[in-house]
Simulated scan of single mutants.
Amino acid sequence: MMRLRIFGAAALLLAASLTSVPTQAQATSPTCTSSPQRPAGMQLSWHDEFGGRALDRRSWSTVMDFPGRAGGHYHNTSYGSYAVDDNVVLSGGKLRLVTDNKPVVGTDPAGTYQYTEGFISSHDKFSQTYGYWEICAKFPAGKGLWPAFWLIPQDRSWPPEIDVAEWFGSIESMHSGLASGTWPDVRWDSHWATGLNPTTGWHTYGVLWSPGHITFTVDGKPTSTITGAQVPDKPMYVVLNSGTWANADRGGPPDATTPFPNSFDVDYVRVYSAR
C-alpha cells in the first residue's frame, strides 16, 4: 500500500493547493460548483460515480461489519433507524440514501424499528492507508436526521474511526473528527462547524490523511487539523449512510416537523493515493 510522505504544515498546504484532474473519470460534476479537484502529486485509486441503475456490488456492501453494531443492519442504541436495501437508490447519476418513518420488523438484530435508513460500505471491497478521500454531496434537513461519511478499519478493530462529515440535523451542525485509543478509553478529537449550508446545495467534503496528520476540508478548504501519534496507520474503508439519531442529546430524535422520506444524496466518492 502506498503511503503519503507528507508531514506537519506540508499536509495543510497540500490540502489548500488543489489541482484539476484532466481525466475522463474526473469529468466535471454538474452538482459541485468547482471542477473536481485532487491534491497535487496524487492519483485516483478508487471511485464510484454512481452512474449505473443499481448499486455496484463489486464496490459496496449494505451490511455492517464492524465492532459496536448490534447486527448487520443496526449499529447501536444511538441509532433510531434500521438499514434496508430498498433505501439505497441510484437515480439520475446520483446515490440517494433514503431515510423514512415507516416502521420495519428487523431480523438482524430482531426487533421493530420506527425508522429505516440507507447504508453502504466498501468493507472487503476497497480499503487504503492514507490518501485523500472526498465525496460531493447534499445533506437532508430536518430534526433528528444523522447522515454521515466516515472511515472504519478493514481489520474490524475500533477505534480508530475517522468522521469526515457527520451531519446532526437537530442542531444543524457538522461534525468531523477522530476516535482513537483503546476501548473503553476512547479519545475524541472533534471539530464542530455551523453555517456550512450542507442542506441547501452541493459541496465537497474531504479528508487528507497522512502519517501523524489529518486535515478535513469542505469545498477544498481546510476546516480543521489533527496531528499526533493517535492518527491511525492501518487500512480503512468508506461508509456512507443516512438515518436518525435516537438519544435526547444533540437535539434529540425526529419529531412531527421532520420531513419524510428524505435522502442523503451523493454524486461521487473518490479516493486518491500518492503516486
Rank of each mutant, 00 (worst) to 15 (best):
K94R: 15
Y79W: 14
V88G: 03
D65K: 10
A83H: 02
N76K: 09
K102Y: 12
V104N: 11
W60K: 04
P109M: 06
D86G: 05
V84P: 03
R69K: 15
V105I: 13
P67D: 03
G68M: 03
R58N: 15
G80K: 07
W60V: 03
Y82D: 02
G106H: 02
L95E: 04
V104R: 14
T77L: 13
G80H: 06
Y82I: 02
S59I: 11
D100Y: 11
R69T: 15
Y79S: 10
D85M: 04
R69S: 15
F66I: 12
A83N: 03
D108V: 02
L90V: 06
S61H: 00
P103N: 06
P67L: 04
P103R: 05
G68P: 01
D86Q: 06
V98S: 00
V105Y: 12
R58E: 15
L97T: 07
S91I: 09
T77G: 12
N101K: 06
S91V: 09
G106T: 00
G93R: 13
G92W: 02
N101W: 06
G80S: 07
A70D: 09
V98L: 01
Y82P: 01
G92V: 00
D108L: 04
S81D: 06
V88A: 00
D85N: 00
V104P: 09
A83T: 05
V88E: 00
T77M: 14
A70S: 09
G106N: 03
V63W: 11
W60A: 03
S81C: 07
H75R: 10
G71W: 05
S78H: 14
V63L: 12
V105F: 13
N76L: 08
T107H: 09
N87E: 09
R69G: 11
H73W: 00
H75A: 08
T99Y: 00
P109Y: 04
L95Q: 05
R69N: 15
A70H: 07
H73E: 01
N76D: 14
G72A: 12
V89D: 10
P67K: 05
H73L: 01
S59H: 13
